[in-house]
Structures are given as structure tokens and as C-alpha cells.
Amino acid sequence: MFCHVFLTGPPGIGKTTLIRKVSEVLISSGVPVDGFYTEEVRQGHRRVGFDVVTISGNRGKLARISGDANNDRCRHRVGQYVVDISSFEQLVLPLMDPFKSSTKALNKRVCVIDEIGKMELFSQPFTSAVGKVLDNPSVVVLGTLPVSKGRLLPFVEEIRHRQDVKLFNVTKQNRDEIVHEIVTSIEECRIEKSK
């Protein structure tokens, strides 16, 4: 039986929007939800980077176009973006530790991880934390995985092929209709974890 739910699909298909909708439904039904999603940062019509936003509304820098970053932080790049590992880890890692999380009801909580992709995987502590959360019997993960373009990301593929993961492929045709199905799947995960 699956214990975690992941969404996958190409960039811009609506995975983060779905994550946010599902989180809102779960929270309104009293399910403890914590975690983060990734949001574009724009200046006018131009995308200049990405921020990490927690479910509780805190925000931190994930990446900026290379001209906007300090030289000492330019070690980690994805295309034109420079990843700010320090800012990312400072905001995200405490959310993934069930003993430090601000969520009071840790039993069968939902941990949102949007996303597990190239930028985020520059952080070894993040990769380790994701593994621990996936193995934690009191946590259900609602996450997103990128569709691989070219070279596969081994850690992403490992998650994609776990026996305890249910994967939803998000398309333009189904993205507006699958919120209820995702919520139902998460509830089934929570029930399975309580056995």
C-alpha cells in the first residue's frame, strides 16, 4: 500500500497550484500540514528567480539569475539561476524534522515538499531529510517530482519507483479535476499509516 503522494509533470503544468489547493482542502478539514512550495519571482514580465514559501507563509530565496547573486554563492547553478543553498536550508530543513516542526499534531501529519529537483538536490542535508521523512511512520508526504529532460536524477528516480509512493501525472487535461482524487489518496495514506 502506498504511503506518500507525488505529482509529476513538465514545468508550468500546474503542480505547485495543485499542491496549494490540496493543502488548503486538507487544512480546512483539520489535517496538520507543514512544508513548503516553490514560487517564481518576477520583475515585470521577466522571471528572475524562485523563492521557497512555507505553508505558514514564511519566504526565503531559493535561486536568482546569476547577475543577481553574490560571487561567493555561485557554486550551484541550474541554467541561468544560482541556487542559494544556505537560504534554502535555513528555511526548509526545520520543516522536515518532525520534532522541530511547528505543527503540534505530529501524528499522521502531511509534509509538503514542492519540489525535489535539481536546485533542491544541491543540498545534501535536504536529500538526507527527505529520505528520513519518507521513512517516518507518522508522516505522509505530498510532493512534486520533475519530469526528467535528458539525464536522470538518481534520487528522484529512487522516489519515483518506491513501492510506497502513488504518482499522479499532471496534464492540462486533468489538472483541474484531480484535486479530490489527490486529497482522497492522502486520506487513504493517513489511514494506512494509522494501522
Rank of each mutant, 00 (worst) to 15 (best):
V5T: 12
D84K: 01
P94A: 10
T16C: 02
G14P: 11
S29Y: 02
R47Q: 11
I55C: 04
K172C: 10
N136K: 00
S128D: 14
F122N: 08
N58C: 05
V31R: 13
G30D: 04
P137D: 15
R47N: 09
G9C: 09
I178G: 05
V48R: 06
A63G: 07
A63Q: 05
D135R: 13
F6C: 02
S29D: 13
R109L: 13
R151W: 04
V78M: 04
L18M: 02
F126L: 11
L93R: 01
R151Q: 11
C3A: 14
S29M: 11
K195L: 13
R46I: 15
E157M: 14
Q173Y: 07
K132E: 13
P98M: 03
L7S: 05
G12M: 06
R160S: 05
F88G: 11
F99A: 13
R162Q: 09
P11K: 10
A63D: 14
Q163G: 07
D84V: 01
S66H: 12
I113C: 03
L152V: 15
F2L: 00
S28A: 11
D164M: 01
K61A: 03
I19E: 12
T16M: 05
S138R: 14
V165W: 02
P98Y: 01
V48C: 06
V139G: 00
F6D: 01
V31I: 05
V110L: 07
R75C: 10
F126Y: 07
V53L: 03
R20P: 00
G35W: 07
V141G: 01
V25H: 08
R160P: 02
Q43C: 08
L18W: 00
G9V: 08
G57M: 06
L134W: 09
L145H: 02
V82W: 03
R75V: 05
F126V: 02
L106T: 09
V31W: 04
Y37P: 02
E24Q: 14
P10Y: 06
E40H: 09
I116W: 03
L62W: 07
L106H: 06
P98H: 04
V170K: 11
R47A: 11
S102E: 08
V53S: 07
L142D: 03
D51Q: 09
G150N: 08
F50D: 09
S66K: 15
C111F: 00
I113K: 12
E40C: 05
K100P: 00
S194Y: 07
A105Y: 04
Q163E: 14
C3N: 15
